[in-house]
Design a protein around this nucleic acid. Structure first.
Length: 973
RNA sequence: GCGGAUGUGGUGGAACUGGUAGACACGCUAGACUUAGGAUCUAGUGCCGCGAGGUGUGCAGGUUCGAUUCCUGUCAUCCGCACCA
């Protein structure tokens, strides 16, 4: 009987679906003992269902996760292994704009295709827990979390998020002078009395400055081609990540997420999770913590009125001071000028009439340059003098104030104290504009370049800092600055608050309407979800409003508990008596909203009352193993950690990190096939002969090429019309292609589809092969040719169980009838190796281990049930279909997925002798079999007595003989 | 520029905490079986050499009885971040 993988795989996929084999024990059935089992949560990042379907690179992480999930199940864990779809997103919307097809329909079609492809691979997903971010039952809770964020502020003293009611209580009691919150920069100090006297609208405006999600006029990255704003992580090299369109800076009122409140905790949390170091480094870099001091410089410009109102928190840009952030307060006596970003708000105020024209021209010129130009061109030095001066806090000397585009408005305070002797950019700027470069470093020559080596720094020419090292000088400088009230130690972060609005249709609507004062109001939970309205077209409105502006009815109208979505006219005609509501928010949430909470929702995905039952999250806690691509390092994975910390603070989630361990699967690249066309002809020359001609390289479909890089010319001629009449110059009667490893993409004709592989070799072969390719985390090229290796392994495995007459199934039940010694050893070394490998996520090596095991058992002619039964369990996480089939043939009535993992027993591996490698000066020359219980001396004697040793020595006397019992013998001399 | 990862046969890759480099596969060579082979089986296959032997883990050093593994320097490729004060 042959290994009929098609029939077997179909059979078991249907069986698993019918009997819901992989449905996780839910808590409702907990009395039956689910909770008594230890939980294990394996999660693969859910996909965006694109129209192109899956290629062989996509399932890599899913297969690894599936193997681990199945393994944990064999080990007796209650395993949660769900899958779903990140189904809001741009491509479906772009398609809708082009065709008018509702994105929901496109999305549904794509999901169906994904599901079919996934089902063919035999994953042990619990599909009953599927979530889709675009499903109202799901995004209801995304909206709900948004409301929780709106209703929270970050208390820096408690170092956690708290409800707004606690903040209001403080305001009513003592105003905000003692409030230490993560908030906007421009909050003013008020007393309890002042607060109570504020009209409602002003109160709300103040509160908005404290909320964790808030409306703000922000400089955003506007992408005109996509008609939307983009987050920093959605921009690559100054153009949109998706589509590569230009991005410009623009001021817009947007919903923002106060992720900066969590900057330090996001950094600290990295130490508590087992994530790849490069990914942690990326996040660390993105958060960009730097320690230093903020320093205030008094502006000596007559145009600026002294403003003595004391602001005890927030950064102070306006008034009579320029505040800067510096990591080198020790160099404060080296300041010879100040530089402001051209966008800095003080620029207009301080510029003298004489300099006005020059400054304005410069500002205009920089505004014109796109972000991309500015980034591409970092060498050109440009700037302008404002004519104004600031006062040095210690020397009281006047310092000229310049503007320059090397100072970024978005970092720090948008102003720097320029120390040309200690910073190369300041140095270059000073050189370029002939500004003095005072030297404040002892024994350092700065005629050629700035000196920035902190470790070798000794300060000079700096009053009280003279003779101090970097570390001591920093401390002293901060101390002195604090003494005169012009500075303090400060930690600065590169991380910015995240823009949360998108001018798009296919995303979560904000559960927000605007009241008569234009202030945002949240819908009640009982009115959620606020579902996406139907629109005629998915483009912005004529007045430039987001697509939701096209909705016929998009006003909220509420009396008492009753609320509805109505048209503008209907709202206008309704009675104002007791009326709540107003126009609904026209923006939608960004792509990362839904994916920032899905891992928790899987724990209790159908709950209608609450986001998830407490018992469910208390049991499942967090993700034990999360697998996905490293491209999400600073997007999804940072935002998710932020939301999780927030949910933890508010008592909604039990853990403040959502995933204990994370693995990045590497990319599978394509191996493109190249043919060589002789220039100007329709003749193609084989790879080996191409150097004799002038040729162009063209890519052909990799599916036309076999394992030996030969092209099937008949098929090629039919593939594309260009080749129909083509001539081919062959070598040895064959046409050989060239190979190039590059990203798997339709345009290179190197995409390999998993369906085709399943069709030809089966899902088990595909699963094994993807693992066999190499270490999970590394990127590696796909070459379909190699799959024959694992496929014939599965056939050998099958034959091992079919040694009966005419290849029928046969296992022997009486272990005594045959010598099991060798087979037991083979089995147990396999158990040990495979178990170690899985625990270390080294799936590629366990595939080789299986091959070795089956080769050995085959040559041992092993037919014993006591060997073959445990073996099939070992293999089942990797190749579940064939394992189920053999398991059934072995006489079992229940799924192999619940069978306990075989127990490794050391006793079968105990050896009495060892094949010692005998080395001479470190080079192995021959081996000698010796008993393991021999002493060092006995081994040395035995080796020296050997004639081969004497032959190697050729009469010399060894200087030294190194004997490591059980390992090696090395003879030196 | 800064940070990170990776360099081992023709190819994918293996080698546990320093101890037989190239496991396991693909490909290739030869042979067997076969009407046929993109099926199956057997043997071989790092490189140089007929051979004994030599040589070999990007390159150059170092530590060690012994280094793919540890240290120093260097080169290449890939991936982040990039005027971050």
């Amino acid at each position: 009987m042959n290994y009929d993988f098609k029939q077997i795989e179909k059979k078991w996929q249907a069986h698993w679906a019918k009997y819901q084999t992989f449905k996780t024990d839910s808590l409702e059935s907990s009395q039956s003992g689910a909770v008594s089992k230890q939980k294990y949560y394996v999660l693969s990042m859910f996909p965006y269902p694109s129209g192109a379907g899956l290629h062989v690179g996509h399932p890599l992480g899913y297969i690894a996760g599936d193997i681990y999930a199945r393994y944990k199940r064999h080990k007796g864990f209650n395993v949660l292994h769900p899958m779903g779809y990140d189904s809001f997103g741009l491509p479906a919307e772009q398609y809708a704009i082009q065709t008018g097809q509702h994105p929901a329909i496109t999305t549904e079609t794509n999901i169906k295709r994904y599901r079919e492809q996934l089902d063919r691979l035999g994953f042990s997903f619990d599909w009953s827990r599927e979530v889709r971010t675009s499903n109202p039952d799901y995004y209801k809770w995304t909206q709900w979390i948004f409301i929780q964020l709106f209703n929270s502020w970050y208390n820096k003293d408690a170092n956690k998020a708290q409800g707004m009611d606690s903040l209001i209580a403080i305001f009513e009691k003592e105003g905000n002078k003692n409030v230490n919150a993560a908030c906007d920069d421009d909050v003013v100090i008020f007393s309890a009395e002042e607060w109570k006297g504020y009209p409602q609208k002003e109160k709300e405006e103040v509160l908005l400055k404290y909320r964790l999600t808030y409306l703000a006029d922000a400089e955003v990255n506007w992408c005109p081609a996509l008609g939307t704003v983009l987050a920093n992580d959605e921009i690559v090299n100054g153009v949109s990540e998706r589509g590569g369109h230009p991005v410009i800076r623009k001021k817009m009122t947007q919903w923002m997420m106060r992720i900066t409140a969590y900057a330090q905790r996001l950094l600290d949390g990295l130490d508590t999770i087992d994530w790849p170091q490069p990914l942690k480094d990326s996040q660390t870099n993105w958060i960009g913590r730097s320690e230093g001091a903020s320093v205030k410089f008094k502006v000596l410009s007559p145009n600026v009125q002294a403003d003595h109102k004391d602001h005890s928190h927030g950064t102070q840009k306006s008034g009579s001071f320029i505040e800067v952030f510096t990591t080198r307060p020790d160099t404060i006596f080296g300041v010879s000028f100040m530089t402001l970003a051209p966008e800095h708000e003080l620029v207009a105020k301080i510029t003298t009439p004489e300099q006005k024209a020059e400054v304005e021209a410069y500002i205009q010129a920089t505004a014109k340059r796109s972000e991309r130009d500015r980034m591409a061109d970092v060498k050109t030095i440009s700037g302008a003098f404002t004519g104004a001066y600031a006062e040095h806090p210690f020397t009281k000397e006047p310092i000229p104030i310049w503007i320059g585009d090397y100072v970024l408005a978005g970092y720090g305070t948008g102003a720097v104290m320029s120390v040309p002797c200690g910073d190369q950019r300041d140095y270059d700027f000073a050189k370029h504009f002939n500004i003095p470069i005072p030297n404040i470093f002892k024994g350092v020559d700065i005629t050629a370049e700035a000196f920035a080596d902190k470790d070798k720094t000794i300060i000079a020419n700096s009053d009280f800092l003279n003779g101090l090292s970097y570390k001591k000088a920093v401390k002293r400088a901060i101390f002195e600055l604090e003494k005169i009230g012009q500075g303090k130690g400060k930690v600065n972060y590169r991380l910015r608050d995240a823009v949360f609005s998108r001018q798009r249709y296919w995303g979560e609507p904000f559960p927000v309407y605007y009241d008569v004062h234009g202030m945002p109001k949240m819908l009640d939970q009982k009115h959620l979800p606020l579902e996406l309205p139907e629109v005629d077209k998915y483009l912005p409105t004529e007045t430039g409003e987001p697509p939701l502006g096209n909705a016929k009815a998009w006003h909220w109208l509420q009396y008492g508990d009753e609320g509805n979505i109505v048209s503008e006219a209907e709202f206008a005609n309704s009675s104002p008596e007791g009326r709540l509501g107003g126009p609904l928010e026209l923006n939608t949430m960004p792509g990362w909203a839904g994916s920032s909470q899905y891992f928790n929702r899987y724990m209790d995905p159908h709950n209608k009352e609450v986001i998830y039952a407490k018992e469910a999250v208390d049991y499942w806690q967090d993700v034990d193993l999360y697998i996905g691509g490293s491209e999400h390092a600073t997007g999804h994975l940072l935002y998710s950690r932020f939301w999780q910390k927030f949910l933890f603070d508010r008592g909604i989630a039990p853990k403040d990190e959502f995933a204990k361990k994370l693995i990045n699967q590497g990319m599978i690249t394509g191996t493109s096939a190249l043919v060589y066309r002789v220039s100007g002809t329709n003749t193609y020359v084989s790879f080996g002969l191409k150097n004799d001609y002038e040729v162009e390289e063209l890519r052909i479909d990799v599916n036309l090429v076999n394992a030996s890089d030969e092209v099937d010319i008949t098929e090629l001629k039919q593939w594309q019309p260009d080749y129909k009449e083509a001539e081919f110059i062959l070598e040895d009667g064959k046409y050989i292609v060239g190979r190039e490893v590059e990203k798997m993409s339709k345009r290179w004709f190197n995409v390999v589809n998993p369906d085709a592989i399943c069709e030809e070799y089966g899902a088990d072969s595909l699963r094994l092969y993807e693992m066999f390719l190499g270490p999970l985390e590394q990127s590696k090229p796909w070459n379909t040719a190699g799959i024959t290796g694992v496929h014939s392994f599965l056939r050998k495995l099958w034959r091992l169980y079919h040694t009966g007459e005419n290849g029928t199934f046969y296992v022997s039940d009486s272990p005594s009838s045959e010598g099991l010694g060798g087979s037991l050893k083979t089995l147990h070394k396999t158990i040990k190796k495979v178990e170690d490998d899985i625990e270390n996520f080294s799936f590629n090596t366990s595939v080789s281990t299986f091959m070795i095991c089956v080769n050995e058992l085959t040559s041992q002619k092993c037919t014993s049930r006591s060997i073959l039964e445990p073996l099939v369990i070992l293999i089942s996480p990797y190749a579940p279909h064939i394992a189920e089939e053999l398991w059934e043939k072995l006489g079992h009535g229940t799924s192999i997925s619940d069978a306990p993992f075989p127990k490794f027993e050391e006793k079968y591996l105990v050896e009495s002798s060892k094949e010692y490698p005998i080395s001479f000066n470190g080079k192995m020359r021959f081996t000698m079999e010796l008993p393991l219980d021999m002493s060092r001396e006995q081994i040395e004697d035995a080796v020296m007595a050997n004639e081969k040793t004497q032959a190697q020595l050729a009469g010399r006397t060894p200087k030294k003989v190194i004997v490591v019992p059980g390992k090696i013998v090395n003879i030196v001399g």
